[in-house]
Design a protein around this nucleic acid. Structure first.
Lengths: 338, 338
DNA sequence: AGAGATAATGAAACCGATTTCATCGACAAT
DNA sequence: ATTGTCGATGAAATCGGTTTCATTATCTCT
């Protein structure tokens, strides 16, 4: 006794239309090579049966997966999810699915093992890596599908990259502070090994050097609200209190402002603060944040486009640098003379 | 001339181990039915060849996809991405992949068509819907895989659900305001048709009724910072200005606070504000927000678990209601007598 | 009219695993 | 000694499409 409402197969459509399964397949994937008459007949049969293709079967034959994997350090962070939205948009237009994996999910030891299983040509046709802290060896084996790095990058790992112009962004931020008269500028960084922190530090150094100033002191944070908050204690305990702080992202900047406020230090009157990223919230906090805007959704789209291009013709280590822009709001002001 | 480094197939492993492909398959998926000796030989051969299974082939034979699709209204919204993180965690433990689709991506007309293509048994083994604004007809056809609704829900759509206790949360929030002496309480809602807004409105009504008060006036927002900001004008133009506002989420609450601040209305001295969700930012804004905490990652995990259970034995319309909790911070205070 | 090119189509091989079914040998029970 | 049971294994069918290759019909050109 067989299921009376089994979903139809290509064979069923073929029989109804009076053609072979091969012809039905052709109508579905390359209609131009089928005669007008049969095409119409097949389309009618598809309609009547309510046939939908079985993608697994197609993918098996075509040696593909129909999906791209995005590796995100922290799914719960809006910064990354907006990039994801951009990736998703581009992939969807190509009929590809977006697979998402949070790289921080399992404990550090198990993380590699678990990831390895996903970095396989049978899991995804390509990978977009948003986590610069992963080990390059994860991606350097035959079974790993093509990789594109976006936003952050992994030292020594080859392949295309899409990055924001972090160095210029940091330089613009610091130049802005210098123009306002600030000289004692602190840099609140992400984790020292993070590729973003490194290139932003270069931008900071560039601006200070050009002004003939010594390198900026640093406090290391973790890109989180909490770490920005914690850093406020460090800022205040410095022998020479800085008059301005450049933060490697907006969340730390907001956390820092909260910490300073609790210590009765006002922004921007007592300390000017600049962030990076221009997250939506930055415009709505009590002192709207001066920051560096980067277009996250656009970055995601470009990354997806690169991956698609890279699959067709494996390109060399092309690197796209997307422009950034300083957004001046209320958290920075001219240094008070006293 | 064939590729000298073609990835090994199960056949290659079998030959090296001196057994049949069937036996290799058994070692990989059900080792207990293979003798100790052969199992060791096969495992050694797998090791030597670096064999990794082709999931597409397995999935075709096993009539599954190995992936679950999450339908999110807005990927860029941290509220949803934290639920996603929970879903991802549970799925990963089961070896399943997480597919993500942003339902707001395409224009409204095309949205249905585009979605339909993804709501197919050959795309995913199951679907977790986080968007209550979708039409139930999308899910009510034979080709659609099992559906679990999480967080929001779709009117009239059957199947398991995981929800936060929205009504109780709203009631607790309003009871808190009532206890502080507030009587003119406004409800800043999400879109009127949204299922969350509806059940939270019920909680608001419940609390007011119990206190013998008339229903609260409402302003409709869109769960966004911007809509909260905009709502401030509406709040201030009311003939009788409210002394407290209950907002359907934290982002609107924060947006509202920003708007009120710009109009020189202080929180909580002039107006008390309560939010919902307890997003991380709420603790760091200049006036830390009183809000209703719901455990988003946990909600995601439960949804994934339900889906897995539901696949095995299609359960009736079970509904899980997760507890919520009032978090009192600084944005609410006792009504000033004057 | 005949040769050659072209278009449309179907039969069958193929993608790479899993799973059914049959076989074989070892061992226990009668 | 014979039969039955059980465990381990391999041959072959299977999942549901796509694609190659061969065949036939149609058309063009000399």
């Amino acid at each position: 006794m067989k299921d009376p409402v089994a979903t139809p197969r290509i064979h069923d459509v073929a029989r109804l239309a009076g053609v072979s399964p091969a012809t039905v397949s052709r109508v579905l994937s390359n209609p131009s090579i089928v005669s007008e008459r049969t095409r119409a007949a097949v389309e009618k049969a598809v309609e009547e049966t309510g046939y939908t293709i079985n993608l697994t079967a197609r993918n098996l034959r075509q040696q593909q997966v129909g999906a791209v994997l995005a590796l995100v350090p922290n799914l719960a962070n809006p910064f990354f999810s907006e990039i994801l939205a951009g990736i998703s948009e581009t992939l969807r237009a190509e009929g590809l699915s977006l697979l998402v994996l949070d790289t921080r999910q399992t404990d550090p030891g198990a993380a590699g093992r678990g990831l390895q299983a996903y970095l396989n040509r049978s899991r995804a046709d390509g990978v977009i890596v948003l986590d610069g802290s992963l080990d390059r060896s994860l991606f350097e084996h035959a079974a790993c599908p093509p990789v594109v790095q976006a936003c952050e990058w992994i030292d020594g790992l080859h392949g295309p990259r899409v990055l924001a112009d972090n160095q210029t962004g940091a330089r613009l931020a610091v130049e802005h502070l210098l123009a306002l008269g600030h000289r004692r500028i602190l840099h609140l960084t992400g984790p020292a090994s993070n590729s973003l922190s490194v290139s932003r530090a270069a931008g900071v150094a560039e601006a200070l050097e050009a002004a003939g100033l010594p390198p900026a002191p640093r406090i290391e944070g973790a890109f989180s609200l909490g770490s920005g908050h914690t850093a406020s204690a460090g800022v205040l305990s410095l022998p020479e209190r800085p008059t301005a702080v450049f933060c490697d992202n907006d969340e730390m900047a907001i956390g820092l402002m909260a910490g300073l406020r609790a210590a009765k230090i006002r922004t921007p009157e007592d300390i000017s603060i600049v962030g990076f990223d221009n997250i939506e919230m930055s415009a709505y906090v009590s002192v709207p944040l001066t920051t560096v805007r980067q277009k996250r959704a656009h970055l995601g789209r470009r990354a997806a486009e690169m991956l698609l291009a890279h699959r067709e013709t494996p390109s060399p280590d092309t690197e796209i640098i997307l422009p950034v822009e300083l957004v001046i709001r209320d958290s920075t002001t001219a240094l008070r003379k006293d």
